[in-house]
Write a protein that binds this DNA or RNA. Structure first.
Length: 753
DNA sequence: CCGTTACTCGTTTTT
DNA sequence: CGAGTAACGG
């Protein structure tokens, strides 16, 4: 190990690294080398031991990070310093670490270890189902609002029954009603939502002192990064675990607390020394990232906030340029100007495209920017928004995996029971749910013995077939790894066939996405360092992925929300849409604390920049399809004007570098973005049929006959099925391909050869 | 039962 | 403008 690393640290950094024992709070200003300190600290403990001179075992360290990516990077850096010992450290997000622990301890809290994790969409879907069942108007009581209230309650450790005491209006009353059933349904689905991954460990610890003692002993050294964004449940977890040894280090910056909307409590960091009166507080105030100008802008704005820990972030870095404020007329204009500046300054500063980032307040803003970059041929990578694993086709396939592994997964089951369509409609699903709830049996039992619960039903055959198919998947999975099982399911469940028949650009891209998921699973199964190659384990990992975790390494400009950019740095940063009502967001103007959070968000945005920073606003912006006027954000007005350059000199620089850009385009002509895929629908070719349309008697139809349909034109019957009113014909139409028609309604005319 | 069409309503931010 | 839902016709 390189023993010189201590000399690379400034005095407070060194203190943060070498003070190994007892409670410590490190206030790490933006760009103060926090990650470096954390890595050195862990390496130091492993290499030199604690203050008593004992070596610290890598298995005894628990490090909680904000994203899985941060954990991965830190682990790699530690491994470079101390070797493979680094692999034993428990390092990851709260959610991933405790889902791991809950798998092992599942039986103790009444779950089985194959429990499913419901993401936001799944959880909201369940709330919606419950609202429907309770006949509560979901137009008024929106599922996402109700779910949000439930989630907040769970974060605050208020159970469904305890929630009753907070009922004071119609909203809280309905929330209470739904909350109770929501919890039951999660339980009977053997599922946990994101909040449960933090609450259930507390339940486990409370009811099993021996288990708590075991983990307290194991995690002798606890480290929590981004402590300013922990919520109450996370706070309680750390208190429980640290209670015995009190070797807890929390690292954070109150000025960067930006997640209160999901329950983060800034008081956790502001009150740390009340919880641990003997705590040592170390402030890292020297910034190594940004120019003095950029830092001055950040400080100007943040000092308007009342609630904060006193600190002075400063830098010894070289004087840079002024911060440029870009003012545009429209959002297209804004996008064009950003694109222009990128294509000129990349040559002027000799930067790669991935050195540029464009940050915005809301995901919806990415479109205009993407379009502007695409026009001049600059590749862009949009992080977040609809991420890969949230796409419909991916979620559909994953729902098949989920049902295969956990047959009580209600949400996943509903999603796939009739997709691709197999004749089990809403009405039938409703009946099945009813039967399960009345008989107090699981959904799976009902499905498997459908005749017993819903006798003489028309659709029992279809339901039985579905159940048998899932049963096959389950058996196959027992003897195969994740990739083999996934491939088997894709081809057997009908999804692949369904998508293959769709030849539109979106259909093709869906097939590609399915293929990409299979590749990801293959990559997972081929990973030699993994011991568990089951589909179950793959799913567990996938459900906890975050935006920041997906990082293909092509050279492209990055677009993301400011929230996603937390913890990152870029040579050149554009903050776009710095307008009143957008940033600060309109909905934050009701309270001082919400406005202060917006200001912290602005602080985070500004402090991502190393060399150059642009703040951009437009005088007009599309909102809900209408153009509306906007003005510069109050945050811009809070900056000392001397730090700002109000007019960029974009145009001259562009002319100077236009030739370089043209050469670049020549070399990269193949470049396209996904957003270029057109969404146009297939247009039916006009047919030269002018005769009178006379529908035939369905009984006269035979396989192989040429027929004509009023809308679809000419086709050939490829199959007939069903009897009486339920008779269907499969017809291959020249214009639109295969269709299944219910002959009760569809009129066909026999074409005489 | 299924697909198409007409309307409504919304944007914070995410593990 | 676009996603998502209700209503309807085949």
């Amino acid at each position: 190990m390189n023993t010189d690393f201590l000399t690379t640290l400034n005095p407070p950094q060194k203190e943060a690294v070498t003070t190994t024992d007892g409670p410590i709070m490190v206030i790490a200003g933006a760009g103060s080398g926090k990650t470096h300190v954390l890595t050195c600290r862990i390496a130091y403990m492993l290499e030199y031991g604690n203050e008593a001179g004992e070596k610290v075992d890598s298995f005894d360290i628990l490090a909680l990070t904000f994203t899985n990516k941060a954990a991965k990077e830190m682990r790699e850096r530690i491994e470079k310093m101390v070797g493979t010992e680094a692999r034993n450290i428990w390092m990851g997000t709260f959610h991933s670490i405790f889902s791991r622990i809950l798998r092992v301890q599942a039986e103790k809290i009444g779950y089985s270890r194959d429990f499913t994790i419901y993401d936001q969409e799944d959880a909201q879907g369940l709330v919606k189902t419950i609202l429907k069942e309770l006949k509560i108007d979901e137009k008024v009581f929106k599922p996402n609002y109700i779910h949000n209230r439930i989630s907040m309650a769970k974060n605050m450790l208020v159970s469904a029954s305890e929630y009753e005491q907070y009922v004071r209006d119609e909203w809280s009353e309905k929330t209470h009603q739904v909350y109770k059933i929501y919890e039951q349904r999660l339980k009977s689905a053997n599922a946990m939502d994101f909040d449960d991954l933090l609450i259930k460990p507390l339940e486990l610890f409370k009811n099993n002192p021996d288990v708590l003692a075991q983990y307290q002993e194991r995690f002798r050294y606890i480290l929590v990064d981004e402590y300013q964004d922990t919520n109450h449940a996370q706070y309680m977890i750390t208190r429980y675990l640290a209670h015995k040894h009190e070797n807890i280090t929390v690292v954070g910056d109150d000025a960067q607390s930006i997640y209160s909307f999901r329950g983060a409590n800034i008081q956790n960091i502001l009150n740390f020394n009340k919880d641990y009166p003997q705590a040592k507080i170390i402030k890292l105030e020297q910034n190594y990232r940004s120019t003095p100008n950029i830092l001055a802008v950040a400080n100007d704005v943040i000092q308007k906030n009342k609630d904060q820990i006193q600190k002075t972030v400063w830098t010894a870095n070289q004087e840079g340029e002024k911060v440029t404020v870009i003012r545009s007329l429209t959002e297209q204009d804004e996008a064009n100007r950003v694109a222009d500046i990128i294509r000129s300054s990349r040559y002027e500063l000799n930067l790669a495209l991935k050195d540029f980032v464009i940050l915005y307040r809301t995901n919806a803003q990415s479109r205009a920017i993407e379009e502007g970059l695409r026009k001049v041929g600059i590749p862009a990578r949009v992080i977040g928004g609809m991420s890969f694993y949230q796409r419909k086709e991916i979620k559909d396939l994953i729902a098949y995996f989920r049902v295969t592994l956990n047959d009580n997964d209600e949400v996943a089951l509903k999603r796939i029971i009739n997709y691709p369509t197999r004749g089990i409609g809403d009405a039938t699903v409703e009946k099945i749910m009813q039967a399960a709830s009345v008989s107090k049996n699981t959904l799976w039992q009902v499905l498997n013995n459908i005749e017993q619960y819903i006798p003489n039903s028309r659709i029992s055959g279809a339901v039985q077939d579905f159940a048998t198919m899932i049963q096959h998947f389950r058996e196959y999975n027992e003897t195969h790894d994740a990739y083999e099982t996934a491939k088997y399911i894709v081809h057997q469940c009908g999804l692949f066939k369904e998508l293959k028949s769709d030849t539109s650009p979106e259909g093709v891209s869906r097939i590609e996405n399915i293929q990409e998921l299979l590749n990801a699973i293959k990559f997972f199964t081929d990973d030699a360092t993994r011991s568990d190659k089951s589909l179950s384990f793959f799913l567990q990992e996938v459900s906890l992925l975050t935006n920041a975790d997906l990082s293909p390494d092509e050279d492209a400009v990055t677009l993301m929300t400011i929230h996603t950019a937390k913890g990152l740095e870029f040579p050149v940063v554009f903050v776009v849409g710095v307008e009143e009502d957008l940033f600060p967001s309109k909905s934050s103007l009701n309270s001082r604390s919400e406005l202060e959070e917006e200001r912290r968000l602005f602080y985070v945005a500004v402090t991502r920049a190393k060399k150059r920073l642009f703040l951009s606003y437009s005088e007009q912006r599309y909102r809900f399809g209408n153009i509306s006027d906007s003005t510069a954000s109050r945050f811009i007005k809070e900056i000392n004007p001397e730090l700002l350059n109000l007019e960029g000199k974009a145009s001259q620089i562009i002319r100077k570098h236009e030739k370089n850009h043209q050469e670049y385009l020549q070399k990269n002509l193949h470049y396209t973005t996904k957003s270029m895929l057109s969404t146009q629908k297939a247009v039916l070719p006009k047919e030269d049929f002018n005769g009178e349309f006379i529908p035939c008697n369905p009984a006269d139809l035979q396989v192989g006959m040429q027929v004509r349909h009023e809308k679809f034109g000419k086709g050939k019957i490829t199959g007939l099925e069903g009897i009486g009113g339920n008779q269907k014909a499969h017809v291959f139409f020249n214009a639109v391909g295969n269709k299944t028609l219910l002959l009760k309604y569809a009129k066909l005319m026999i074409v005489q050869e």
